Amino acid sequence: MKQSFTNWLIFTGLSLTWGCSFILMKVGMEALTPFQVASIRLLSAGISLLPFFFQHIRTTPLRKVPVILLSGILGNGIPAYLFCIAESRIDSSLAGILNALTPLMALVAAFLLFKVPVKRQQLFGVCIGLAGVVMLFLEKGFGDNAYWYYGCWIVVATACYGINIALVHHYLKGYTSLQLGSIALFGVGGMAAAMLFSGDLTVFRGARFPWASVAAACTLGVVGSGIASVLFYLLIQRAGSLFASMVTYAIPIVAIGWGMAAGETITLLQVACLGIILAGVYLVNRKKA
């Protein structure tokens, strides 16, 4: 009973943490640019796991380090910038809904890159999920070009997530999430620092330092990318991958809740589209008895 309660406590914490990340990006961009928010996020995430980097880098085979760094770029680096760029023009709740595409993208990436066989039920689930995305875009009509353009960047970000999941599954088995995360985030954190300090830093030198936006970006990194990755691995160890994967269903619900609290307009059609996407995710992950 106690173990089950702890598992649900971790599950709730992960759902709230990752679900809040979309609104935190909005808060960060109130005073900072999308590139600054993403760079601070990645830099702070790398710093938060720095002690574990020194612990694990010595026991990691050198030939695996480039693969881990590529995993960091695909699983953290590129998506962090794409999500922030997209949210400069679209609602955080929509970003949370589109993020639910990740399991579908993982299946497609595994099939295209590693020829993993796909069952008819899973293919049907992918089609349903993509249909939900198309309906979500059609809700705004064809006249809003920015809505389509920036929304598609999130689809690309979930594709990066999917490729990374397939990459880790096929080339990085046997390594813990903490080991992979600390090395990967050390690499992308260094790249993010170079991008941050080579850009315009005027906003940080002004009379009014953007404390709220910087705090939001740092929270994204330390809690959303650093601590949450450790908790997710712990949940997989304690409750299994099937239970842990259900976080996918809770994240967009939290994102929608924060969007409503922030005054974003959320229609019944958007909620229905989310239901269709999650139905597709269910079919992809469902195992036959």
Rank of each mutant, 00 (worst) to 15 (best):
117 P>K: 15
80 A>W: 02
239 A>D: 07
194 A>R: 05
187 G>F: 04
143 G>N: 04
213 S>E: 02
118 V>E: 09
94 L>G: 08
108 V>G: 05
95 A>G: 15
21 S>E: 11
222 V>H: 14
67 V>A: 01
57 I>M: 10
211 W>A: 12
116 V>Q: 14
146 A>W: 06
21 S>R: 04
153 W>T: 10
200 D>T: 01
150 Y>Q: 01
237 Q>V: 04
224 G>D: 10
78 I>E: 02
36 Q>L: 06
40 I>F: 14
243 F>E: 11
22 F>L: 03
132 G>N: 02
246 M>H: 10
44 S>A: 15
8 W>Q: 11
275 G>R: 08
31 A>H: 14
4 S>K: 12
74 L>F: 08
166 A>P: 15
136 L>G: 04
256 I>W: 04
129 G>E: 01
222 V>Q: 13
235 L>V: 10
12 T>I: 15
100 A>Q: 05
154 I>A: 03
170 H>D: 10
15 S>W: 01
72 G>Q: 02
242 L>M: 10
225 S>C: 13
127 C>Q: 01
70 L>H: 02
59 T>G: 10
174 G>D: 04
179 Q>D: 06
161 Y>L: 03
119 K>T: 15
62 L>A: 14
287 K>E: 08
96 G>P: 13
29 M>Q: 08
254 V>M: 10
4 S>V: 08
217 A>M: 04
9 L>W: 05
238 R>S: 11
254 V>C: 05
230 V>P: 02
38 A>L: 12
122 Q>A: 10
167 L>Q: 00
251 I>K: 03
184 A>R: 08
212 A>G: 06
206 G>T: 09
199 G>N: 10
243 F>D: 04
230 V>Q: 00
3 Q>N: 00
235 L>H: 01
153 W>M: 14
220 L>V: 09
139 E>Y: 09
190 G>H: 05
214 V>W: 12
83 F>I: 11
216 A>H: 02
213 S>Y: 12
2 K>Q: 12
